[in-house]
Nucleic acid binder design. Structure first.
Lengths: 119, 119
DNA sequence: GGTATACTAAACCTCATGGTTGTAGATCAG
DNA sequence: CTGATCTACAACCATGAGGTTTAGTATACC
């Protein structure tokens, strides 16, 4: 299973791939907000903004509760942690001092033959 | 500037939002691979797979060098770190024991008035 | 009641994504 | 040279993403 099967990560990363949605998350990190508050700084129409909120809800990054006529949204961060964990897997690849060591280890794993033994 | 302006993060998160591309990254974390090696486990045609590699290159997550007739790809991890850093901003939101404290701090920041002073 | 306010839902548009097939160009091996 | 291998490129298709406008439904306020 070389291809990881994780549709939830698909949704989370896709949700994070738009500046408006990251802006919403940043706002919600300051506490609960209603849809109008979330939409107002977003230089787009209200329906467009609420669509972005929906994308965040599909990714389970935002929870909504209805109070009277307003919909209060709050951040639900655990999926964000999942995304961070996936990314952190490759931390050693971006930590420069291990770069050379990585290459060496790869070379050794290859053994006496070429980079990849056979297939 | 509520909406963060970072087209690079757009590209990175978008690149990570597809299981095939995450699979490619996982493969490349094991060392350099040519396009055929990357494509073979991907249950899709070769052109489709190379398109995914292109997306990763646009996000600066993959570097390619041509050796003879094969194109060797390797992981370029720094953008992955940027993504992790952005996500980690919200770590305190997913760490449960700080949940109550966060709420309290938010309440205090609001001052004597309601959750949000005015607008 | 009447009027704002907060939000939904549907229809529509444009463009990007993700996939296919088919053709063609280098390059390596014999 | 010949044939197999690795890759590129273009054309095409279906679907979804991201945005708009318009109309409609609750809820709050006076």
């Amino acid at each position: 299973m070389v291809v990881d099967q994780s549709p939830r990560l698909d949704l989370v990363f896709h949700a994070l791939a738009h500046p408006a949605r990251r802006g919403i998350i940043r706002q919600l990190s300051g506490g609960e907000r209603n849809l109008s508050e979330l939409a107002s700084p977003l230089r787009m129409t209200f329906p467009a903004a609420t669509k972005h909120v929906r994308v965040l809800e599909r990714a389970n990054l935002v929870r909504r509760r209805v109070v009277g006529r307003q919909h209060l949204c709050r951040l639900h961060a655990p999926p964000l942690r999942d995304a961070a964990l996936w990314t952190e897997q490759f931390r050693r690849h971006w930590e420069a001092r291990f770069g050379a060591l990585d290459a060496l280890l790869e070379e050794m794993k290859g053994g006496a033959t070429a980079r990849r033994p056979r297939r």
